[in-house]
Design a protein around this nucleic acid. Structure first.
Lengths: 320, 320
DNA sequence: CTGTTAGCGCATTCAC
DNA sequence: GTGAATGCGCTAACAG
């Protein structure tokens, strides 16, 4: 018991005893066993985080925001990749819960029925991010992808563009991508622009290269198109480079816009108009929310459900 | 005990008993507690993985390769970000070991003295990746960054370039970046090109934007430069876009090359010459190696140290 | 195929 | 400031 205390921080131990213990620890190469500690104390120090993917995506920034927020709290991320599938998400929720995380962060508000049930009954704080679900499980840190995309449509409309197309993936697996398309369609209708031009190409998340190929199709199918909104900056960049190859002037001949404000859209030439969505902040604020929620649980005073809507803004650049 | 068995896969349980148990599990919303299981069975099912960063970097691909390799093995990644610092790495090694991972994967062969000691005494398989250490702790999956960079220099030399510059970060924190610069310098000397032109700009990992700014400096300092090798594709892309802005023709006026074969170098216009390094495969093969090593440990037959050198190759594209 | 016993390595709780 | 007893929830090992 004395050793256990010596290895904690805020315990009262005689300096002499502590030194003796520390020397033994050093000599033996002793390392605390946290699984045993967790079992006994009922605190695992884990936070489960489920993201669709971590490669070339905004979610990497969100994960970093979370990591930073949890810095020094003694909590550790348990990261899982759903690969944009709610079925995979369900499996992951279950396997994560076996590790007894003290909170769980998921991406989006769509889950399988069982996945949702698992979340609801987990007995730990749940945070849904990157979305604004109609019926959240509990806490939310996100924004409406549909509304964000709509605001981009209105922005382009305000600049005089009328024949505006949307480039996205073929399925609705990427629910945020699907929401963006929905927002595009609604905004077009609301503006009296009847002929929505949607190119669906590639399994989400669509790559730079697929963005380029989609642009080729777009030009072929609707040669009179004036502007293309891409489901993400990566595909927008691919589309932009395809324009370079085809000697289509951007934005003179065709305007290109993306979504997400990746570094690439800031640095590319021309720089790409996009919707900035504060990926890092979503993680950061989710982390802060979660710290308060865990604190509440430990004290036996569960936190009331909280919804944080993060900002987004159209960032107008040279490509439109 | 019967319940415990019913929830495993390969146990012999009467179908009737199993159904009864499963029903109770469903009704109660029971979820196994794996920390308790780990304590008892001495298998945590964790694999610790330390990478410098996961944002916009090759390491995200390596992590994905590892994830894929471990798919279905029941092992779960415990990911940590060292932020390119060996001190942070040391801390992370220690905190990871408290979780009793069954293996640990680190990036690079440079560690603090204590970090190395912790790895050596951990009593689990250790894999160093992304490097070819002179004295590995145990297993290695990587390649020589210096040699890879040197081969790029020789490639450019073969194409007729002589005034070849190197753009990298200011410090040696990014040891792989530092190795690449070293390889560049050695190769220049070996080719009889005495005047190495090194631009050090920005804290590693250097961003697209910093790549652009570094190019501006390069042109200013050595207007006669013929080719620039950038420490990574991201900075190469930034440099390329800066050339666009300054109306410097690539590769006519100046050639640009990167490192890492990110998607961006394939898709940008002009496409960027780079060194392909199989990031995903490093993870994948580390994962496979680690599965064998863990299997060996469980059987009490530790695996002999193994070194897997992964391929790299100069990929010549339009930018040179 | 099912059940009993024991113990994994800690932290909680209480006694001194 | 230190220590003894106890149990966290599971699985290994063995018995039946």
């Amino acid at each position: 018991m004395t050793v256990s205390r010596a290895l904690k921080d805020g315990a009262s131990i005689a300096a002499k005893t502590r030194n003796k213990i520390m020397k033994a620890v050093e000599d033996l190469g002793y390392v605390l066993d946290q699984s045993a500690g967790s079992l006994s104390s009922k605190r695992t120090g884990f936070v489960a985080v489920l993201v669709p993917s971590i490669n070339n995506s905004n979610f990497a920034d969100t994960a970093r925001g979370l990591t930073d927020a949890l810095q020094g709290s003694g909590l550790q991320l348990l990261l899982g990749y759903t690969d944009y599938s709610v079925e995979k998400e369900e499996e992951l929720i279950e396997s994560m819960l076996r590790r007894r995380p003290e909170a769980i962060v998921v991406t989006g508000g769509r889950h399988t029925a069982r996945g949702r049930r698992l979340l609801e009954n987990a007995g730990i704080p749940v945070i849904e991010t990157w979305d604004q679900p109609a019926k959240p499980v509990r806490h939310v840190v996100g924004f409406s992808n549909a509304e964000a995309a709509a605001s981009l449509v209105r922005h382009l409309h305000g600049k005089g563009y009328r024949k505006i197309a949307f480039i996205g993936g073929t399925t609705n697996r990427d629910t945020r991508g699907a929401d963006r398309r929905l927002g595009y369609e609604r905004a077009m209708t609301a503006l009296g622009l009847k002929d929505a031009r949607v190119i669906s190409f590639g399994t989400p998340p669509i790559t730079m290269q697929q963005g380029g190929e989609a642009l080729a199709r777009l030009i072929e199918q609707w040669p009179d198109v004036e502007a293309a909104i891409c489901v993400s900056d990566l595909s927008a960049f691919g589309a932009l480079m395809e324009c370079h190859r085809r000697k289509l002037q951007v934005p003179k001949r065709i305007a290109i816009a993306g979504f997400g404000d990746f570094e690439i859209s800031r640095c590319s030439y021309p720089a790409i108009t996009t919707v900035g969505v504060h990926c890092y902040d979503i993680g950061r604020r989710a982390g802060e929310l979660l710290l308060r929620a865990i604190e509440g649980e430990r004290k036996g005073q569960p936190m009331a459900a909280e919804t944080i809507i993060t900002n987004y803004a159209v960032i107008s650049r040279e490509s439109t």
